Structures are given as structure tokens and as C-alpha cells.
Simulated assay, not measured.
Amino acid sequence: MIALFWISFFIIFYAFIGYGILLYFIIKIKRAVKGKPVLPAADNLPTCTLIVAAYNEEIFIAEKIKNSLELNYPEGKLQLIFITDGSSDKTADIVAKYPGVIHMHSAGRKGKMAAVNRAIASVTTDVMVFTDANTFLNNDAIINICRHYADAKVGAVAGEKRVLITEKSDATAGEGFYWKYESKLKVWDSELYSVVGAAGELFSVRTDLYEHVPPTAIIDDFMISMLIAKKGYRIVYEPEAYAMETASEDVKEELKRKIRIAAGGLQSVIWLKSLFNPFPLPILSFQYISHRVLRWTVVPFLMIALVGLNIAIVHANGGAIYQLFLAGQVAFYGMSLFGWMLEARQVKIKIFFIPYYFCMMNYAVIRGIFRYLSGKQSAVWDKAKRK
């Protein structure tokens, strides 16, 4: 039991904290030897197409188009494609009013990837940038992304997601904290070798490297970028290209989103099983397993096992260290439970929402795993409500 306890604790600690610590020291050593990486100049930027798939986004779509038209990029090198397939509200009508936008619409709803692939068939530019309809980009986002393609080894670029936390969004304060930590890990991942996947809020790929993912893909953005990484190209992280969106309306909506991502995470682990072989791309495999696979598979179950093992060891007259561990676990989960109770009453004490959000994320992984294995997770996006 003691051996299982320490193995479980090490894997949990490594997945969430230890990998970050290890990356920090690796990057420190790398910078001491090679110096800090220099950003490429924004010269001779490639031609680019911004692709936005919008389904029933009448609330955001006009502002999204305005934001897209105001993006800085060399004249004549950027085109905008908005696909509104299946939208039953005024989204398609609103997009049709803007002559500076290529509008594609089909009455049937076949899913996001079917819409995106239809648009990609008409793309002739060097690079494609994908962004969500309910996010807004900083003015230099496309320039900051596309400058990285001066390096022939770069096959994709991931932008940064920034969560706008308002006074009314304290219930999801953990979401902002989580993304800040994730962003730092991505900076170090990118500097070591490659980011492990990209998020759909903002990412880019070389057009000639794009590979169609199956329509059953649940987290298509992650798969698109990782299929390029599998070919030996790097995914660079660019924090100065960011997409801003509000937090989920409440934790219930955030949980719905996390369960879907978790189901897609397990699907991706199965589809990308070749990356478990470290010999073709050793650094990528190390990053992928450390940053993604552990969190999306065994860690939530090990968290449950750790509590049970800790109780059993203390019951069997384990030493003081195990009693302290148990007290720490009880305190942490107690704070999480208290955060859940406060959230239900809309009481704003942020310190309790970070452990609550952490536990909610891991609960979502367990739910997502069972949903995927039961075949109940659709690839059609059921978007979470946002503030």
C-alpha cells in the first residue's frame, strides 16, 4: 500500500506541478547555453486566410466581423471566410451584409469540421488561421502568428486564450487561474520543442500541411495541430496573439465544456497512440505524455485511490507523515466542497474556487472518459453558455 501511495502521489504531483518545475529548470539550462530565443521579424509575411465557423452566433457575429476587419496585416495578403452552416438564427443574414467577407452558408448542419473542410477546399493562401466566432483578437494577432512561418520547421502556431473575468464571474475564477498556468507551460513547451496541441480559440497551420480529421473528431483543433506535429514540424506558442472570451456563465456550463473536452482527450490519446513510441520524436512524446496523457487518463482515478490508500495506511498505524498527508487532503477537498456550496449560493470568496475548479476538472475527466467509452459523446459541438 505504501508503494502504491507514493507512486500515485508522484504521478499526480508530476502531472500538475512537477512537469512545470522540470520544464522551468530545463529552459533555464537551455537559455544559459544557447541564450534566449529571438522572435522572427515580421518581414515577407505569408498570404493568409482567417476562417471562422459560426453556428447561431447572432449575438457576437457582427462584433466578430468588425474585429476581424480591423486586424493589422499587409494589404492584399489577408482574406476572411465565415461559414454559417446550419444556423437557424440571424447569423447568416448578418454576415451577408459585409462585402469584405467571403460568406459560405448551407442550410444543413453537418458539424463544425464539415463546414471547415468545405471552406478549406477554396483556400489558396500559404497559411490558414482558425478562430472561434465568440472570441476577439488583438489587432496584431495575425502578424504575430504568421511571422513564425519564416522558420521552415514551424508547421503550426498556437495563440493564447485569455479569459475575461468580470465581477459576476467569480464562480469561474478558477478558469482564469488555470489558463494563466497553462499559458506559462505552453511558453516553456514551445521553447523546449513544441506545444502539445492547439486550442480552437486561435491557432494557425500551413495550408499544405493541413490534414483532414475524421468528422467524428470531438476536439478537432487539437487533432489538426497534432497531426502536423506528428510529421516532425513544431507547433509554436505565440502569447502576443491572443483571443479574448468571457468565462463560462456558471460552473455547470463550464463542467459541460470540460466533459466534452475530456471525452475528446481520450479519443485523441487513442488516435495518437503512435506517440507512445518515443523513438521517432522523443521530445514530443515526452511532452505529450507529461502534459496531456496523464491528465486525460489516469490522474483523476489516482486522486481517488490516493485518498483510499492514505486512509488505509493511517488506519494501519502509519507514521505522522501519512497523518499529515491525510489532513492535507481532507482540508483541500473540504475547501473544494465549501467552494461548491458557496457557488450554489452565489457567494464570492475566490480562494475556495481554485480547489473547487481543480476538482471539477478532474471529475469532468472521469465523466468524459465514461461518456466516450459508452459512445454517448457526439462530435457536434453543444456550446457552453458564456457571460
Rank of each mutant, 00 (worst) to 15 (best):
I59T: 14
G232E: 04
A243S: 06
Y357F: 15
E211F: 02
E63M: 10
M335H: 03
A107G: 13
G100R: 09
M361V: 02
A92T: 06
L80Y: 02
F25R: 03
G264H: 10
A305R: 08
K186T: 09
I143V: 07
G197V: 04
A92N: 06
P280G: 07
N144I: 00
F353H: 15
Y242E: 07
E75L: 08
C146L: 04
N139R: 11
A107F: 13
R206Y: 14
L80E: 06
A141L: 05
E57P: 09
G86F: 02
T166I: 04
Y149G: 00
N72Y: 09
I143N: 02
W188C: 00
P46F: 02
I26F: 15
L281D: 15
G319D: 11
V33M: 08
C359I: 14
D93L: 13
I235A: 07
A96Q: 12
I321N: 14
A92W: 08
P74D: 00
R371Y: 13
I26W: 14
Y14P: 05
Y193Q: 12
V123I: 08
I27L: 06
M244H: 06
P214K: 13
F82P: 02
M1Y: 10
F60A: 14
A114N: 03
D151F: 09
L281C: 10
I261D: 12
I311D: 00
R206P: 10
V314Y: 06
S88P: 01
R367T: 00
A305Q: 07
V196Q: 05
D382P: 01
A320E: 14
K161A: 13
P280Y: 09
I102D: 06
F332R: 08
V52D: 09
P282S: 05
T166D: 13
L4Q: 01
